[in-house]
């Protein structure tokens, strides 16, 4: 407990340290109740569902494992480190300190969860949506080829989610860059590393990962390319039941200049107005907005949203 009045005794450094430790403990204890209450009350709340939290933890461990594996390969050993290896655990904790990476992994867990719900409720195939089906059948070879590659990437993603895996090549480039910086810091940092020989291998490992990376081949890169190629036909990708969640989220993010992660948060229960606003900002009319909201069981489009034009809706989203 800290005291606000002046201490009559001369300052004692040992006591001061203790006081600080107590204060920290107080803060931690004060946090227990609200967090616990939130987790208990928000049981049905997808954002912090145990499944989602577990997936986030597992995915970060997988990313960390891949980064460490690249280091062992650079070192000449081709044996992945076990997940319980201290280096893997330490790097995983470091990765969780990167807010954008955490948000991305969280959003992917939410995406997988929502896709599974859409399949259960509407029978919407997470891999082969009507739009993907139509694109695969396109007479244009390039479009059909892209759609096939996206289909394969989406199928891979759905399988990997179950296994809590996320290949480094699927990360957006900025996040991969952040992860590589974390790798370097973790291995070369002042705290030393559980495997001193590995420190020198961080750089070559990072270079190898960079050289192998190609945003275009990632699921999100392919989705963005397909959406861009749709041009004026992007409306088709903005209808959730038609496009499937993967393309829908990419299309809406591109149309509203929001992060894809923000779109995935907006499809969560209770976020109907935000999603409606995003769809409005993307230039959709009521019927189209209703359709996507209904697919998510997010209620009718709020009347306030329908009174706004696209530009105003975009302004509101941008915080204006």
């Amino acid at each position: 407990m800290s005291t606000s009045h002046a201490d009559p005794n001369p300052p004692d450094s040992a006591e001061a340290t203790l006081r600080q430790a107590l204060a920290r403990g107080d803060a931690a204890q004060a946090g227990v109740a609200p967090v616990l209450r939130h987790l208990l009350v928000a049981e049905d709340h997808g954002l912090f569902a145990e499944e989602v939290v577990t997936r986030v933890r597992g995915t970060l461990a997988d990313l960390s494992g891949q980064l460490c594996h690249a280091v062992t390969v650079a070192h000449g050993l081709d044996a992945p480190l076990p997940p319980e290896d201290p280096a893997v655990a330490r790097l995983a904790r470091q990765l969780a300190e990167i807010p954008a990476l955490l948000a991305h992994v969280h959003a992917l867990a939410l995406e997988a969860q929502a896709a599974a719900q859409l399949r259960a409720r509407l029978g919407l195939d997470p891999v082969l949506s009507p739009l993907v089906q139509a694109l695969v059948a396109s007479p244009e070879a390039e479009t059909a080829d892209l759609a096939m590659r996206f289909l394969a990437a989406e199928a891979r993603f759905q399988r990997q989610v179950l296994a809590m895996r996320l290949p480094l090549g699927e990360l957006p480039p900025e996040l991969l860059h952040g992860a590589l910086l974390a790798l370097r810091e973790c291995l070369g940092g002042a705290g030393g590393t559980p495997h001193p020989d590995f420190a020198a291998c961080a750089e070559p490992a990072a270079e190898a990962i960079r050289a192998n990376y190609d945003e275009r081949a990632s699921r999100l890169g392919l989705a963005a390319r397909i959406v861009t190629g749709l041009g004026g036909g992007v409306v088709a990708a903005l209808q959730l039941p038609h496009a499937g969640l993967g393309l829908f989220a990419s299309a809406l993010a591109l149309a509203t200049a929001q992060h894809r992660e923000q779109v995935l948060l907006a499809i969560q229960p209770g976020q109907g107005p935000r999603l409606a606003l995003m769809l409005r900002a993307a230039g959709l009319r009521q019927a189209a907005i209703d359709e996507s909201l209904a697919a998510l069981d997010a209620g009718p489009t709020p009347a306030e949203v329908l009174r706004l034009d696209a530009a105003r809706a975009a302004q509101l989203l941008a915080g204006g």
Partner: peptide
């Protein structure tokens, strides 16, 4: 970033 990118 020294990474291959593809974007609209």
């Amino acid at each position: 970033l020294r990474l291959k990118l593809g974007r609209p």
